[in-house]
Amino acid sequence: MFEIRIHSRGGQGGVTAARLIALAAFYDGKQATATPFYGAERRGAPIVAFVRICDTAIRTCCQVKEPDLVVVLDPTLLSTVNVLKGLAPGGTVLLNSPHPVALDGFRVVTADLTGIALVLDLVIAGSPLLDTSVLGGLAKIGVITLDSAKRAIAENFTDPRNVAAAEKAYAEVAA
């Protein structure tokens, strides 16, 4: 079982990302679940969502306590939320950031997802959308395949810029 925890802020697409990642993993032939944690959501508030990917049926629906990988869509969350909680030493963090960031004891993969959203003008109500580009980063890390990521995105969004965002992230991320 591979478990992912996604940290984002309301409006960035963290919950949608969880669903798309699970769908992509499903298209890869895996069992997958996406469990958003619903609290008092509002734009800008910290949001958590979970993805589980497994070769066999997934019985648990509880929150992911010991993730194998953490996704952080907003780097400002690093100073307000313990995004590393439960992550094993050496575990991977996929961080949306234009600059390299070091987190002692962890493998940090940075991707300028906000930059990609701005270049492609994937912005709604002033909020750059990160929910599709992040799949490209995860594909580069090897969690899902790029083909399945593109298929999952294309099935949910007709605007081709969403698939383009994932391709761009895949090309740019050094993993």
Partner: peptide, 10 residues
């Protein structure tokens, strides 16, 4: 509610 209603599964 949520645990099943909003979790995506096969």
């Amino acid at each position: 509610g949520f645990i099943l209603s909003h979790t995506m599964q096969p």
